[in-house]
Amino acid sequence: MSIANRKPFPLALISVGFVIVWVFLAAFPFIWTVWGSFKVEQDFFSRETWWNAVTGLRTIAQTGSAFTGDGYYGAWVTRDFMSSVFNTAIVTVCVVVISLTFGTLGGYALARSGHRYTFWILMAALVFRAMPHITLVSGYLLPFFQMNIWGYLPTSIIVLVAINQPFTLWMLHSFFLSIPKDLDESALVDGCSRFQAFRLVVIPVMWPGVITTGLFSFLLAYNDFAVTAMLLSQPNQTMVPKIASFLGTVQQEGNVMFAVAAVVSATAPLFLLVMFFQRQIVSGLTAGAVKG
């Protein structure tokens, strides 16, 4: 540590204290909800004291044990959250694969072409990136009803791929700029066609950038609510719209714990993602910043 970073004791204390408060604020809601999802509603939403949710007073009285999986059973089995999980898996995998395929081709072309129109394509992509998704959805609905393709998974997949393209293009464009031009140009000199140069020379070195971009495509598809809520029919719903539909019906029946369990189930994969790919997420967030 350099001298410039050395701090007098009180200041260091304040600084560490501030970070501790922030970490608490960031983490506590998740820890609390995960813990509470194993209790009964009268404990997690206790009218008496929140201490009941810690000790599980009512949970013990009702189920005989301090932890119960009733919420999970209700959500996954009774309310068929299982099929939404399956749908989400299909949607996210397809969106990531297709948008990376389109994005690497497009991003590579944008990074290697010096023509004026690349600027316009990138600017259009920036404007498209800023469009609120719900405004686009209001444009889809009527044509999709007419063409009779509303409600199916493939429709949502291709829509999410398209919405994802501007971001993917920008990110991969700046990534390909960091790969030296000489690499594929020497392949061209050796007699490769453009596509061969891409396939044989660029693809082997592009994986770090592709994985980072893929993580963000995954997050977009996984976290989306506007598109999947409006474009999927009831049986094809993915997790997030399913959770939203829980809210209306479940709250009346007094089964809020189903929704809590579903929320925790939907957050768990994201926990794992951050745990394993923290470095890539951080570098992806900053890559755009440093170059954009």
Partner: peptide
Amino acid sequence: FAFILPSLVAMILFI
């Protein structure tokens, strides 16, 4: 254009 076509078509059609 051969490279960027899929991505461009997707953006034109759906955005």
